[in-house]
C-alpha cells in the first residue's frame, strides 16, 4: 500500500491521524488500551466530566435498536478533580492526545471546569458538551438555543489557555444546526464536534412501559449516520473555514471517508467500540487503504471534497460494492 499522509490539523493543533474515540464511548482510554495503543490514534475524547462526582441515572440505561442503541447514562463520572489526578495523568503518561470533554448544569460550572483544566499539561483540545440541561433555565438544553450555546462557549473560551482549541459539540435535535454552529463560532469556538446523540425512546411491549430508567435517551450508531453526515455537510457549507470533528455511526473506514468528504477534518468512533473494542485502529487502517485505493496521497485533500460542483472529475469507481443497488449498465451510463 502506498503511504498516505494521514496527518490532520484541528484549529492549529496537529494530529498524526484523524481517528478519535467519542466522548462517553471510551471512558478515559484505559480499558481500551488492552486492545490497542491509545497513543496510536488521533486522540482520546474522554467521557464528559462534571465538577462533582456523579452517579448518573437509574438502570436500565441501554437498549439495542436496529443498527444502533439508545442510552441514558446521565453523565456518571468521578468529578473533575479525580479525573485530572487519575485519568488525565494516565493519558499523558501514555503519550496519548487527550481531548477533554466537559459538561455542566450552569454557565458557572462550565467556567469553573475550564479554569480547572487551564494550564494542565497533556490536553490537546477541550470539547464542550452543550447537550446538557440548564438548571437555571427549567432544564432547557443549552445546545437547543443559540444564545445559551454561545454563553457556554464564551465562558469556556475565556477560561481556557489560548493554545488549546475549544470545540463545541452540537446536538442534531434542532431546527437549523447552522444557527447554533454560527452562534458557537461567534462566541469563540475554534471548531465544532458534530453530532451528539438524537433524543429517542423505546417501549417494552411486554411490560408496556418505557425500557430506559430515564424514559428517554440518546440514539447512536449506524442508524444515525445519514443524519450526522447531513449535519456535517450543512455546517461545513455554512462555515467552510471552521474545523469539524465528525461522528455518528462510524463503523468502517468508508464511513469515516464519508464524513471527511462532507467536511470533517477528523472523526470520532463511538458506539462501534462497544461491539468491536479495536474499532478505532481498524477504521484508521481501512480509511488509509480507501484513500490509497482512490489515488489520494493526502488526507487533507478529501476534506469537504463532496461539496465540489457536480461537473468536476471523479476518480474511477474504486468501490464497486457501494453501487450494489445500481444495475451494472446504468452505473456505466452514469459514469462521467
Amino acid at each position: 500500500m502506498t503511504r498516505v499522509d494521514m496527518t490532520t490539523r484541528l484549529a492549529g493543533v496537529a494530529f498524526p491521524n484523524p481517528v478519535f474515540t467519542a466522548s462517553g464511548c471510551a471512558a478515559a482510554g484505559q480499558e481500551l488500551h488492552a486492545f490497542f495503543d491509545v497513543a496510536s490514534i488521533g486522540g482520546v475524547v474522554t467521557k464528559s466530566i462534571m465538577l462533582a462526582p456523579r452517579s448518573g441515572r437509574a438502570t436500565p440505561r441501554m437498549a439495542e435498536t436496529p443498527s444502533g442503541m439508545i442510552n441514558s447514562i446521565g453523565l456518571q463520572g468521578p468529578g473533575i478533580d479525580a479525573f485530572l489526578e487519575r485519568d488525565l495523568a494516565w493519558l499523558e503518561a501514555q503519550g496519548a492526545r487527550a481531548v477533554v470533554s466537559i459538561a455542566g448544569g450552569s454557565l458557572e460550572e462550565y467556567a469553573l471546569l475550564a479554569q480547572k483544566l487551564r494550564g494542565r499539561a497533556g490536553i490537546a483540545m477541550v470539547e464542550v458538551n452543550i447537550s446538557c440541561p440548564n438548571v437555571e433555565d427549567r432544564g432547557q438544553v443549552f445546545a437547543c438555543d443559540p444564545t445559551a450555546s454561545s454563553n457556554v462557549v464564551d465562558a469556556v473560551r475565556r477560561n481556557t489557555s489560548s493554545g488549546v482549541p475549544v470545540f463545541a459539540k452540537l446536538s442534531p435535535d434542532v431546527t437549523d444546526i447552522t444557527t447554533i454552529a454560527r452562534a458557537c463560532v461567534a462566541a469563540g469556538a475554534d471548531g465544532l464536534s458534530v453530532i451528539n446523540t438524537l433524543l429517542g425512546m423505546v417501549i417494552d411491549t411486554t411490560t408496556m412501559r418505557p425500557v430506559l430508567g430515564g424514559v428517554t435517551g440518546g440514539l447512536s450508531g449506524p442508524a444515525i449516520r445519514p443524519v450526522a453526515v447531513r449535519c456535517v455537510w450543512q455546517v461545513h457549507a455554512a462555515l467552510p473555514d471552521v474545523p469539524i470533528l465528525g461522528m455518528g455511526g462510524i463503523r468502517t473506514g468508508l464511513d469515516a471517508l464519508e464524513f471527511l468528504l462532507a467536511g470533517a477534518s477528523a472523526v470520532s468512533v463511538g458506539t462501534t467500540v462497544f461491539g468491536d473494542p479495536s474499532a478505532p485502529v481498524r477504521v484508521l487502517r481501512e480509511l488509509e487503504q480507501a484513500l490509497a485505493d482512490r489515488g489520494i496521497d493526502r488526507l487533507s485533500d478529501v476534506v469537504g471534497l463532496a461539496h465540489r460542483p457536480p461537473a468536476a472529475r471523479v476518480p474511477e469507481d474504486a468501490d464497486p460494492l457501494g453501487d450494489e443497488l445500481v444495475p451494472a449498465a446504468a452505473a456505466q451510463e452514469a459514469a462521467p
Binding site: 448518573g56 441515572r57 448544569g105 446538557c132 446523540t197 430515564g214 435517551g217 440518546g218
Partner: peptide
C-alpha cells in the same frame, strides 16, 4: 454523586 438537583443529563 446521586443527582439531587433537577435536570436530566442524557
Amino acid at each position: 454523586g446521586a443527582i439531587t438537583a433537577p435536570g436530566a443529563h442524557r
